[in-house]
Design a protein around this nucleic acid. Structure first.
Lengths: 111, 111
DNA sequence: TTAACAGGTAAGAATATGCTTACCTATTAT
DNA sequence: ATAATAGGTAAGCATATTCTTACCTGTTAA
């Protein structure tokens, strides 16, 4: 399926954790794999998905493969979801209490 | 699998489009389904996933089922991804040019 | 009351996903 | 040179996902 889709890539919890680990900086596969209960090949496969989504890059140094986060690929997700920020921010304002009772999204559709 | 996982729910492009449609306000299934090439049962099934993830609620009015976005469920995604915002914001600042050449994430790991 | 409409569920098929074991290459250490 | 290390790929399996057709319920219109 959509091998390049960032949303798909981060839809899997293990891959999300890998991204989180990489948020602390570049790391070799060995270190990335350590916190997980699954086998290393499984990690390699997840890293491949992240690679194909453009979310990580690899640098070979000797026999180690250092993965690095390409955070800018997350921007697509950020932009998409930030668009909905207004819904929960609105609730913090004047009519917040009312909307709390009524729901989170506007009721009328304008087309 | 994780039927409740918001990340999983929005990992599918059709469901993301449904969320987008609902961003314009509450709508019955008929209207939601119209832009898609797939059958209405398929839409019902996607809506079910969104419901189970807490991303939408339904209100029955006569024979129509009005779906409404529960945008606050997207906050989990927003919070997760916003954490990485610094990576591309940093690039706009002083050392941005340098990082542009070197990559997007910090190189060293501190553990 | 009967037909049409809105929409859900069920079953089944095709494909995707996530994992394992087995195996391969390249690098470093002995 | 040989063994150990790092990590990737391949094949295969079990389960999940996505879609379809068939069918069912409840509501409105004729």
């Amino acid at each position: 399926m959509a091998r390049r889709d960032v949303f798909h890539a981060i839809g899997e919890p293990t891959r999300r954790r890998l991204v989180d680990l990489l948020g602390h900086g570049e790391q070799p596969v060995n270190r990335l794999a350590r916190p997980f209960a699954i086998t290393r090949p499984a990690i390699s496969q997840h890293l491949r998905v992240l690679r194909e989504a453009g979310l990580v890059t690899v640098r070979r140094e000797g026999r180690e493969h250092y993965y690095r986060l390409r955070a800018k690929r997350l921007r697509e997700v950020y932009d998409w979801v930030a668009h909905y920020e207004r819904f929960w921010h609105k609730r913090l304002r004047a009519l917040g209490k009312y909307l709390d009772r009524e729901g989170d999204a506007p009721r009328e559709n304008s087309s």
